[in-house]
């Protein structure tokens, strides 16, 4: 299980909540990109793209290295794994709970409910 502190996990979910940043991550998953390459598909200024990259950096999802005048960005997958762990944990918890609830509702029909005991 990948552990991340709650504030760190908050910043990951915050970063992922924006469609532009998700698209940037998808692009980075294919390889390193500079800010211009990340901005290009979104018709946005370099400054605006840089802001998005900063949010991704703060969440630990992107590392930036400076090569001369170019800022090269690279994806970091560890925080994504932590976010995924979080989702899976609660998804399992609720799914199991709903299974149990379904059993209870089936075994004790309400007075107003259909009285046939057969499952259709």
């Amino acid at each position: 299980m990948v552990e991340l502190s709650p504030p760190a996990l908050d910043s990951v979910f915050h970063a992922l909540a924006d469609p532009t940043r998700r698209a940037m991550l998808r692009s980075l998953a294919a390889g390193e990109r500079n800010i211009g390459e990340l901005a290009a598909p979104h018709a946005m200024s370099l400054a605006a793209a840089s802001k998005h990259v900063k949010v991704l950096e703060r969440a630990g999802l992107v590392r930036r290295r400076i090569m001369g005048r170019s800022h090269l960005c690279r994806i970091e997958t560890r925080p994504l794994a932590a976010a995924d762990d979080w989702l899976r944990f609660y998804q399992r918890l609720w799914s199991r709970s709903f299974d149990a609830l379904d059993d209870i509702l089936c075994e004790e029909p309400a007075p107003s409910a259909r009285s046939d005991g057969e499952s259709s």
Binding site: H14, A83, W86, A113
Partner: peptide
Amino acid sequence: VVLETLRLTRRFDSPPERV
């Protein structure tokens, strides 16, 4: 900032009041 992160839907054979 409120981040919706998880959504699950389930159908039950009982009316909403009971569930």
